[in-house]
């Protein structure tokens, strides 16, 4: 699970471009050991944050440090960072094994170590005989895994993944998310993941950072943003008239929500009332669960 070790710290980042555009306006945050999601609308400053964290862009003021090293000032700091870009970035002519060995060496690993780590990383990501074939012939899912491997091969402390499930079909997406969880839980590498898919973030991340209008508007544990509300969702099959009556008799406040019912009540005895009402009405109980907030709610009505 997520720890408290500080992996990355951004202090009062400001970025103003020559044309006067203020991309980032005094953004500060800390990334702890764990899987953190980076959310935000397109054009809200998220990509600027990413570029600064990777050392590609110098902030106008403020600084970002990874394990204490300033990324813009110190080239060597980049040896502890991995990056998985959103768009295509793999050479088509070379095999995955050769490509990964090469990338490991460019990150500073001696050749023999680079070769063995390349082979090991590919194995951990589930690429076996394929690794000796040219990358151009790989499927999308395999290419995404190679992309992730090149971010991990040099044993970074922290990897940044930009839309890691883009273009993947549902099965591939599930496999990639499992690999991301494995990266943290088994490999012990902290992850910052930028994604537009709230379902991915809810399933995979421990914490989130939300950037909007060049500012950090939310930061915290995912569990906090998806906490249970004080309402309960109930769904039964078949006719629910009898159920509604039984609930009313027990004084439960009910509103309909599509195929189901939303019941309000902070008191735990609500569950007992539900159970008894369902039995009384003879209604087949399909689903009963406390309603949780969803991350998409952060984007549904302006800034919450």
């Amino acid at each position: 699970m997520a720890g408290d070790r500080v992996i990355l710290e951004a202090e009062r980042l400001v970025k103003t471009y020559a044309n006067g555009v203020v991309a980032l306006d005094d953004v500060s945050f800390t990334i702890h050991d764990g899987i953190t999601g980076l959310l935000g609308e397109n054009g809200a400053g998220k990509s600027t944050v990413i570029k600064i964290l990777l050392g590609l862009v110098r902030p106008t003021s403020g600084r970002a440090t990874v394990l204490g090293q300033d990324v813009s000032a110190d080239l060597a700091a980049r040896a502890r960072i991995g990056y998985m870009p959103e768009h295509d970035c793999l050479p088509s002519q070379v095999s995955a094994a050769e490509f990964l060995t090469h990338m490991a060496e460019v990150s500073g690993l001696p050749p023999a170590v680079a070769r063995t780590r390349a082979a090991d990383t590919l194995r951990h990501a589930g690429l076996f005989e394929e690794r000796y074939r040219a990358i151009g012939g790989y499927s999308t899912g395999m290419k995404q895994r190679v992309k992730l491997c090149q971010a991990l091969v040099h044993d970074p402390a922290f990897v940044f993944l930009d839309e890691p499930t883009a273009g993947l079909d549902p099965v591939g997406r599930e496999e990639m998310l499992a690999l991301i969880r494995k990266t943290h839980r088994e490999f012990g590498i902290s992850v910052l993941m930028s994604s537009h898919l709230m379902a991915d973030v809810e399933r995979t991340c421990d914490r989130i950072l939300v950037v909007q209008g060049g500012r950090l508007v939310h930061a915290g544990e995912v569990g906090h943003f998806t906490r249970e509300t004080e309402t309960v969702f109930l769904e039964v099959d078949g006719d629910r008239e009898a159920l509604l009556a039984a609930l009313a008799r027990r004084g439960v406040a009910v509103t309909t929500d599509g195929a189901g019912l939303v019941l309000a009540g902070a008191d735990q005895t609500l569950y007992d009332h539900v159970r008894d009402a369902v039995v009384e009405a003879g209604a087949p109980l399909r689903r009963l669960a406390p309603r949780r907030r969803a991350l998409t709610e952060l984007f549904e009505r302006g800034a919450a």
Binding site: L56, R78, P85, D88, C89, L90, V106
Partner: peptide, 12 residues
Amino acid sequence: EGVLQLYLVRPI
């Protein structure tokens, strides 16, 4: 092919 972006985030 986009490989350049991978080089630019390494220590060079």
